[in-house]
Design a protein around this nucleic acid. Structure first.
Ligand code: MN
Ligand code: MN
Ligand code: ZN
Ligand code: ZN
Lengths: 142, 142
DNA sequence: TCAGCGAATAAGAATCATTCCAATCAGCAA
DNA sequence: TTGCTGATTGGAATGATTCTTATTCGCTGA
């Protein structure tokens, strides 16, 4: 697998250990599913993708693993519309582009200065830990 | 009531007519609930607020009315986390600040040039109809 | 004014994503 | 080995929303 994303090599086992959590085959297989196909799948889609490799895993466990990965800051939970949560393993600062025709979601890299400009709209006293930016519209046909 | 928001006077009856929809007491009372208290209530909260004035309205109708108002572009449906949708009658360009401690959501005005800067991150071919920006963190105590 | 018609509402059932629960299970330590 | 604790399972429960169906309403044309 060639990583087209330039990211720090976030090691699952390490991050789990740091959080005082155990590494398990289920957590590995769920995390890997998010790494190999970065199309922001739902929990149920992850479940479907992971079952061929681990047929005994339960949907509840997929939910548990995803929650754990989010807690460890290895995965972002994405909610920009009604409907199931989606999960994203891209740790670089990025916005989401939601294609209203196809339903697909794309990552749009966010330069630091844009992020800074956005944060500058906050009045004094507002302390933002995170900023989420989502576009809705039509993505290129290609 | 003094409108602290400087907005075009979006007339409900007019907008409904424009969309070929009928004005009804239910739609008026639901829309009014969003105008008088702009704290991004859920459908259920709107239901609770509206019942004293119209005890026979049903929750299903509240959902229907909210959907209609969203369709008419009089109301924004806001989803930035799991959980019930919230509704916002502020038509001016603004971001949302979600206070993680209190759960409250505040409107943050968005200057056009910031919006333009954000849109500039889109690669060629991406046509964004709307941009949503949400901050998560801690709002001032006051 | 009134009948007819489609739109809108009301009440409750159904759906769907998620969470909860209770019973195993697994890895490590005594 | 045995215990302990965290993790996994399968199924039940929950909560928000949507759907269905009957009823009511509002407008238009006679
Ligand atoms: Mn969409
Ligand atoms: Mn929150
Ligand atoms: Zn992403
Ligand atoms: Zn708002």
């Amino acid at each position: 697998m060639r990583l087209s994303h330039q990211e720090p090599p976030a090691n699952l086992a390490q991050r789990l250990a740091d959080s005082g959590l155990r590494n398990t085959p289920q957590r590995e297989v769920v995390y890997n599913a998010l790494l190999v196909r970065r199309d922001h799948p739902t929990a149920d889609e992850v479940y479907t993708r992971v079952r061929p490799e681990m047929p005994t895993i339960s949907l509840a466990t997929v939910y548990n693993c995803l929650e754990t990965l989010v807690q460890c800051d290895l995965v972002r939970q994405v909610n920009f519309e009604r409907g199931p949560s989606r999960y994203c393993a891209n740790l670089l600062p990025h916005a989401h582009f939601h294609d209203e025709k196809t339903g697909a979601t794309y990552d749009i890299p966010l330069p630091p200065e844009v992020l800074a400009h956005v944060r500058s709209v906050l009045p004094a006293g507002y302390e933002a830990k995170t900023v989420e930016i989502t576009f809705h519209g039509q993505a290129p046909i290609a």
